[in-house]
């Protein structure tokens, strides 16, 4: 198991990153990505914040225990890609 931290990027610059101080443990990075997507789906569907106008502009910046960025998961990844060209 490894601990991953789910920082949320909601606008550019240092003040646009909500830092996760606690993190959560997962078997691997893929499991952490699935968790990020499931959180994003629920947040997009039913959670409103005063200062966030568009969830589609937000992204999870997942970090490992050493504070290194390991994966970016845009909230827009919750929307399936269109089958149409």
């Amino acid at each position: 198991m490894a601990r991953f931290f789910f920082n949320v990027r909601h606008r550019p610059g240092p003040e646009g990153l909500a830092v996760d101080p606690e993190g959560e443990e997962f078997a691997d990075l893929n499991a952490a990505r699935e968790r990020a997507l499931s959180q994003a789906r629920i947040m997009v569907a039913r959670e409103r914040h005063t200062f966030i106008r568009d969830w589609m502009g937000c992204a999870f910046e997942i970090m490992d225990e050493g504070g290194q960025p390991v994966l970016t998961v845009p909230f827009s990844d919750t929307v399936p890609e269109s089958d149409f060209d």
Partner: peptide, 25 residues
């Protein structure tokens, strides 16, 4: 903790992280 706060507010943990940052900001 943010984890417990999410339980209290009925929100995703990352939503709590965002709200904490907003009030702290």
């Amino acid at each position: 903790t943010h984890d417990f706060l999410s339980l209290m507010l009925g929100t995703q943990r990352s939503s709590t992280t965002l709200a904490v940052q907003a009030l702290e900001g």
